[in-house]
Simulated assay, not measured.
Amino acid sequence: MGAEAEERPHGAAVVADGLGLKGPRGWAFREVTFRAEPGSLVTIEGPSGSGRTCLLLALTGRMKAQEGSAEVGGLPLPRKMAAVRRISALGQVPGVSELDPAFTVAEHLRERALLQRRYDGSVRALLRRPAERAAATRARIEEAVAAAGLDLSALPKGERTSVRDLERLEALRLSTALALIGRPRLLAVDDTDLKLSDADRAEAWTLLRAVAAAGTTVLAVCSEAPEDTLRITTLAATTDPDATEAAAEPDAEAAEPDGTEPKTPAEKPAPDADTGTATPDATDTDTDTGTSTDHTTEEGAADALAETGRA
């Protein structure tokens, strides 16, 4: 009982202070400052191409910032990127962590559980009898599926349903379940509300609130964040390249990949420039606002992503 309690996820505090990341043609994000307590639901909102994904990847140790500092669970970034990757997990992140459309739901779950057991299992766990290991794997899968609210019996072919046949909300639940199999302290999800109806969007946020309430800190990229979350906003810049935009939230995109995860193509850049923004302090009722001192660009974000092999 005691050992099992020690394995249960506990959220990682996330702190950023003047965080910035630059690509060859400009800043992907800059002057990002905020603090999130363990078990917080942190939303990174803004238009597509405004640097949201790069910020998400930088805060999970998968992209290397060049300016400022950050800590995740007390681990400093970028110095401890590998350690941060070990305590964080990616849900859906297009081009980085994606579901294979040809796999079934059961195949995805079994593969992730086996990989998790292979790479982070204790020596004692590896020495268990096969029947015990199989039971532990099933229990971990069932726990993650329940936490993600994925009802396997409601799928068209149950757990044998192919990913290509899943509705978008179901795919979000599956990718969240896969991430939770590792019992991370930090869960990151991209494009949370993309192509969801109002009802499905509400269910998606209910899911992520539940994950956070259970103790795992959640970072979620979206186009419009619920008001009850710690919001970090990325904004499109004005046409004046010297203009600076300030807001009560931040912006991001740049790169250093996690060797355990696939490298795949990036989001397509749009023609406008972006501006990194400021962020709130989750520990106070008031918010602290940082201001970018230089404009950021979609080109900078796209170039930073390209350096990870995503473009």
Rank of each mutant, 00 (worst) to 15 (best):
A89C: 00
A89M: 12
L90S: 06
L90H: 04
Q92E: 11
P94V: 11
P94E: 06
G95D: 05
G95T: 01
G95V: 13
V96S: 05
S97K: 12
S97M: 15
S97P: 06
E98S: 13
E98V: 14
E98L: 00
L99G: 07
P101Q: 02
P101F: 01
F103M: 08
T104Q: 04
V105R: 00
V105I: 04
V105T: 03
V105C: 00
V105F: 01
V105P: 01
A106G: 05
A106S: 07
E107T: 04
E107A: 08
H108T: 01
H108M: 04
L109W: 02
L109S: 08
L109K: 00
R110N: 10
E111D: 11
R112I: 07
R112V: 14
R112A: 13
L114Y: 05
L114G: 06
L114N: 02
L115H: 10
R117Q: 15
R118P: 09
R118I: 06
Y119P: 01
Y119N: 11
D120R: 04
S122T: 15
V123G: 02
V123F: 09
V123P: 09
V123S: 07
R124F: 13
A125F: 06
A125P: 05
L126W: 11
L126M: 06
L126R: 10
R128Q: 14
R128S: 12
R128M: 07
R128L: 12
R129A: 13
P130V: 01
P130H: 07
P130E: 09
A131R: 09
A131W: 10
A131F: 03
E132A: 14
E132S: 04
E132D: 13
R133C: 02
R133I: 08
R133D: 03
A134V: 02
A134G: 08
A135H: 14
A136H: 10
A136E: 15
A136F: 11
T137D: 06
T137F: 01
T137V: 03
R138P: 12
R138G: 08
A139Y: 09
A139P: 15
A139L: 05
R140I: 13
E142Q: 13
A144K: 01
A144Y: 06
A144S: 10
